[in-house]
Amino acid sequence: MKYWREPLDLKDIRVPHGVIHILKERCKGCGWCIEYCPRDVLAPSDEINTKGYHPPHVVQADACVSCGLCELLCPEFAIYVEETEGEVVLYER
């Protein structure tokens, strides 16, 4: 994301980074996490679990900002985010 000027509080803002864990055997492939991830971190995979559904997989692991929306929306308790030490750079100078 590029802005016409550098935000004044750029140095103070720390955008957290998250690591996504997917419990594939619980997934029923509803696709809500893929659709509503604001950073498009997830995508459908070709993998099939024992129930015959396609669980999502992580395609842009660096982009996750640990918002936790996938964890809250998932009806199967099959995905969760763990916040890590790292940072996500949202603004390019």
Partner: peptide, 13 residues
């Protein structure tokens, strides 16, 4: 778990 609710049901949420 897994619960009996259909895929696409909002009850889990």
């Amino acid at each position: 778990l897994p619960h009996i609710w259909c895929p696409g049901c909002g009850l889990g949420t």
